[in-house]
């Protein structure tokens, strides 16, 4: 974990999302599925984002503006500086034989970087609208389904090693369908580095910190 003030290189539209490109500075990109805490200008707390792209000298984040924090981040302009901490948490286990990336909506965020590190495995992505689905262009080898079709409807009988990120209902469904799948979960986070105990999920009757034990967890490991 490292904290740096870094400069915004560019803020580009991708469908309804923003692709925020930051100067990498001394920050390490980490493993796909790990995340960074980004300062949200004017807000008290930073917000967690998976690393989406890791070109040399840059860190790229795909942002969906849904509330005050993400809106402040989505409005950042080239040349502005924000505080960034990371990489944080545990990313995906990349030692998989037959990877299949399964994502829904903004859950596509970690996949461009993950796909690159796994040499372009097949991906199955679900979106609300064709406009949202424009983000699929960031992921090679992607099959796209649109609402009302769900990614779980389109899942092959033998899906292989599933690496998934998306809304909780999608991950819950995968948890039942694909034991051992790697699921990138979300919880509201204040710190992202184990300090606040705010991000807990239940596991074996106890609450564990998702930012420390996750955000990527194994289906069937008892983490909700």
């Amino acid at each position: 974990m490292q904290t740096e003030r870094v400069e915004v290189v560019a803020n580009e539209g991708v469908g309804p999302y923003r692709l925020l490109r930051l100067r990498r500075s001394r920050l390490q990109p980490g493993t796909p599925g790990q995340f960074f805490m980004l300062e949200a200008p004017g807000r008290v707390l930073p917000r967690p984002f998976s690393l989406s792209l890791a070109p040399t000298r840059e860190l790229g984040f795909l942002v969906e503006a849904i509330g005050p924090g993400t809106r402040a981040i989505a409005r950042l302009e080239a040349g502005e500086e924000i505080r960034v901490t990371g990489p944080l948490g545990n990313g995906f286990d990349l030692s998989v034989r037959r990877p299949l990336l399964v994502g829904g909506g903004i859950g596509v965020a970690p996949f461009p970087y993950l796909s690159e590190r796994l040499n372009g495995p097949p991906a199955l992505l679900g979106f609300r609208t064709a406009h949202h689905a424009e983000a699929a262009a960031l992921v090679p080898n992607a099959e796209v389904v649109l609402d009302p079709t769900l990614v779980t409807d389109a899942l092959p009988d033998d899906p292989g090693d599933v690496l998934a990120c998306g809304p909780a209902p999608m991950l819950d469904a995968l948890e039942g369908l694909v034991p051992g799948a790697q699921l990138a979960r979300e919880a509201p986070m204040a710190c992202g580095y184990g300090a606040c105990y705010g991000c807990v999920v239940e596991r074996d009757g106890w609450y564990v910190r998702l930012c420390v034990e996750g955000p990527v967890v194994r289906a069937g490991d008892g983490a909700v």
Binding site: R43, V44, A187, P188, A190, C196, Y197, C199, V201, Y207
Partner: peptide
């Protein structure tokens, strides 16, 4: 102590 069930945190104006 298990602590309280989530959601455990919320950002508000000027604090959390």
């Amino acid at each position: 102590r298990r602590g309280n069930p989530p959601v455990r945190i919320a950002e508000v104006e000027h604090g959390m």
